[in-house]
Design a binder for these strands. Structure first.
Length: 224
DNA sequence: CACAGAATAT
DNA sequence: CATATTCTGT
């Protein structure tokens, strides 16, 4: 029944988020998962949580009726992800169907193998980035890739990746400056509210990107 | 030689 | 476009 968990690569206790409107179904899923050494994290049934899950890295969405085999191979998603993120095979993940004494080998679908997927800047990652930026000073010469990286303290993130993101971020800010030069800035000049440092913080779109106009002012002058 | 930042490349 | 990689100057 659960001999596949004998595979040394199987991540016992792998956490699983279960979503379903039917409480009974959820309990069934939980029971099956528990039997198969998966650990169910949550029974949150709201649709929005589904989207959140996908956004935050869920790699599969199952619809009923569920097949037990789906559960059995679900850990392979992890292996596949690990393979795509690290160029070499992780020692801990023995994927090639070695003839390991009578164990039930689970063949992974052939994948072009060591193809490293590129980093995706999720909202969470971006929050880390922006937090670091705000600490260093958005316009400060201290806001350098290495320092940002250290502040972010995110596993396996490289300075190159931060540098690339930083380049995009600055380009983006430049665009915003030109806008605020005519809209928000001019509004400030003529009128009542002389914002404080905090009130200068301007929200941009959905990304919760903040910047401090007072810090950006030098550039404003230059670009005028 | 390390690094940041701009310029390209994918 | 978003990210990655290479090029350049410090």
């Amino acid at each position: 029944m659960t001999s596949f968990t004998n595979n040394p690569s199987f991540p016992v206790g792998l956490k699983v988020l279960a979503v379903d409107h039917d409480i009974g179904a959820l309990c069934t899923i939980r029971d099956i998962c528990n039997d198969l050494c998966y650990q169910v994290m949550s029974l949150d049934p709201t649709p929005s949580s589904v989207m959140d899950s996908i956004t935050q890295g869920a790699c599969a969405f199952w619809s009923k009726p569920l097949d037990e085999n789906q559960f059995k191979i679900m850990w392979q998603h992890l292996v596949r992800k690990a393979l795509s993120e690290t160029r070499e095979l992780p020692q801990t993940l023995e994927v090639k169907g070695g003839k390991k004494r009578g164990r039930e080998d689970v063949d992974l679908p052939k994948q072009p193998l060591p193809k490293k997927s590129r980093l995706s800047w999720t909202t969470d990652l971006d929050k880390l980035f922006l937090s670091a930026m705000n600490q260093l000073g958005v316009n400060s010469i201290n806001a350098t890739p290495k320092k940002i990286l250290k502040l972010m303290n995110f596993p396996d993130l490289t300075t190159g990746q931060v540098a690339s993101h930083l380049q995009k971020y600055r380009k983006y800010l430049k665009g915003e400056i030109k806008k605020s030069k005519f809209s928000r800035l001019s509004a400030f000049q003529g009128h009542d509210e002389i914002p404080t440092q905090q009130q200068h913080l301007t929200e941009i779109g959905e990304c919760d990107i903040f910047f401090d106009l007072s810090e950006l002012f030098p550039d404003l002058v230059d670009n005028l």
